[in-house]
């Protein structure tokens, strides 16, 4: 494969019983760009995320991150190589405070040393005043932001976001999109699963389309929008 890919998914297949959730799927992701992963419900997007992050073990194929195999690694090992993710359903630690939610994922240095960075991140999404509130008491949108900055706390090179815009009000959405664009400026690579086509079209430089676990198209957003197969997958057959 050509050099310079940060993530390569090659011919990955994942089955659950008789159902093939991901079917010989291949993607190549270059560093420093924002990618979109779209497809109808049940097309295997989240399963693919789970395979990349080690939560599900792929049945076939291989996954490489910075030219090293990561399929078969445990989730925490994948995370420590530099891949961070968020979840479709919010998964903050409800009975830890907002600040603790960030400190707990730090890997090096003392807790005090990480406090400063954690506070910066809280300020970044305007949650600094709620640092000592239990995460479970925060509003939905605030939890979403907290989960987002919790990923940043681990300083990953590749960030997988599973439907970041779902259930977020327009103001918050703008903040979130701004924050994601800032990541690109910092040289991070982002792969987003998203339903909202407007978000995908406005944010992503490249889009992969999954349908029934197979990649049916890839290309820049404007090309994808015009793709007949994609429209068919979305709007019925």
């Amino acid at each position: 494969m050509p050099e310079g890919h940060i993530l390569e998914v090659r011919e990955v297949t994942k089955r659950f019983g008789g159902v093939t959730a991901v079917n010989h799927c291949s993607l190549a992701v270059q560093p420093g760009k924002i990618y979109g992963l779209i497809g109808p419900n049940g097309s295997g997007k989240t399963t693919l995320f789970n395979c990349i992050t080690g939560l599900d073990r792929r049945d076939e194929g291989e996954i490489r991150f910075k030219d090293e195999r990561i399929d078969g690694l445990k989730p925490h090992q994948v995370a420590c190589r530099g891949i961070g993710r968020t979840f479709q359903i919010i998964r903050v630690f409800p009975e830890l405070t907002a600040l603790e939610n960030l400190l707990v994922v730090s890997r090096k240095g003392g807790l005090a040393g990480n406090c400063q960075r954690a506070m910066e991140l809280l300020e970044f999404v305007k949650l600094d005043r709620l640092q000592n509130e239990y995460a479970g008491n925060l509003s939905y949108g605030q939890q979403k932001l907290l989960e987002f900055i919790r990923v940043l706390m681990t300083d990953p090179e590749l960030i997988l976001l599973d439907e970041p815009a779902a259930g977020v009000n327009p103001t918050l959405l703008n903040d979130l999109l701004g924050a994601i664009r800032k990541l690109r400026v910092q040289g991070k690579t982002v792969l987003i699963v998203e339903h909202d086509m407007k978000v995908v079209m406005g944010l992503c430089e490249m889009v992969f389309v999954l349908d029934y676990g197979e990649k049916i198209a890839e290309g820049p957003p404007e090309v994808i929008q015009a793709n007949e197969r994609v429209m068919e997958a979305y709007f019925g057959r």
Partner: peptide, 13 residues
């Protein structure tokens, strides 16, 4: 205790 899968995914062994 709060969410083991999230903890694992965030790099905690």
């Amino acid at each position: 205790r709060e969410d083991e899968i999230a903890a694992e995914t965030m790099g905690i062994n």
